[in-house]
């Protein structure tokens, strides 16, 4: 029909110059962020290669101590990994139940009005500067915990992990709520029509239908906890230690990077390069998790 119109023109553009400029501008912004990422990756890769010219992979993966700043240098990554895993694990143990329950309440029980107020209010939690959380953990939560738990050090992964859990509750609840809300009403109706109660409808039909979205939110929250710096740097201590005891001071990968960058380590030294290696390892961890999370999100979008 269109092409048959006499003299009709469907090819070419009708957009004016202004529109073209905006298009180019937007493209520029997009490219800029891609270049930035590429640049970071490039620097990480260069420094990481330089590091591994002096330190063997075996030292990196099989040593159990991390002491690049000492005279007796060890480069075993595991103490930093264990510190990171421990604090993040505690965080997720705290955040998962609260986040899930909050999401279920918001999506399935709260009235529209309540939901409109509560959801943003919860998201404010995520907007609190992490340094505030860090000091809150150190000067408020740790003393309270010390009164209850014998042997709890002044710097410990327990209070840092718990407060980090508070911080990521809104990530889990918000994304999970989106996933639950996206479950089509026809499934709920199908369950009700079979004589299911509200609770069994939620737990056996709605939650399973949203499971990949929920998993995505949890993974993203973990990756946020793994990358979190301020809270653990302030409250968990700066002593690389291969332990799963939550009462002891530990050092996470992020904290190590802060520690070295804040010091006066000259560029080009092995100590200096070690922060890029840790950064690269951190990047691989969070990238993998974000990737999995995205795949899962896409799957639940296509499933419902």
């Amino acid at each position: 029909m269109l092409s048959a119109a006499p003299g009709g023109r469907v090819h070419g553009r009708s957009a004016g110059l202004g529109e073209r400029l905006i298009e180019v501008g937007l493209l520029g912004c997009g490219l800029l962020s891609i270049f930035t990422t590429a640049g970071i990756l490039f620097v990480l890769a260069i420094e990481t290669f330089a590091f591994f010219r002096e330190v063997t992979l075996a030292q990196f993966f099989f040593d159990t101590q991390w002491t690049p700043l000492f005279a007796d240098k060890h480069f075993g990554i595991w103490p930093l990994v264990s510190g990171t895993v421990l604090t993040s694990g505690i965080a997720i143990l705290v955040a998962l139940p609260f986040g899930l329950l909050a999401a279920i309440y918001l999506s399935e029980f709260a009235e529209q009005r309540v939901r409109k107020v509560l959801k943003p209010a919860l998201e404010i939690l995520a907007g609190v500067p992490t340094i505030v959380y860090g000091y809150f953990a150190l000067v408020f939560v740790t003393p309270i915990l010390q009164a209850m738990i014998p042997g709890l050090a002044g710097f410990n992964s327990l209070s840092a992990g718990m407060i980090m859990g508070m911080m990521i509750i809104p990530m889990i609840s918000s994304m999970t709520e989106d996933a639950l809300y996206a479950v089509p009403n026809s499934l709920r109706e199908g369950a009700y029509a079979l004589g299911a109660t509200r609770l069994s409808t939620i737990f056996r039909v709605v939650l399973p239908a949203a499971v990949s979205g929920i998993a995505a939110s949890v993974i993203l929250a973990i990756s946020r906890a793994v990358g979190e710096t301020m809270i653990v740097a302030i409250a968990a201590g700066q002593q690389p230690r291969l332990t799963l005891d939550p009462r002891l001071p530990v050092e996470t990968m992020t904290t190590y990077i802060v520690q070295v960058s804040m010091g006066d380590t000259p560029a080009g030294t092995l100590e200096y390069r070690s922060i890029f290696v840790v950064g690269a390892a951190l990047f691989v961890m969070t990238f993998t998790m974000n990737f999995v999370s995205q795949r899962l999100t896409r799957r639940y979008r296509s499933a419902v």
Partner: peptide, 15 residues
């Protein structure tokens, strides 16, 4: 509703 079943316009098997 256990005595009065229902089938909907759009098939809605539980995914």
């Amino acid at each position: 509703r256990r005595r009065v079943g229902m089938v909907f316009q759009k098939p809605n098997p539980f995914p």
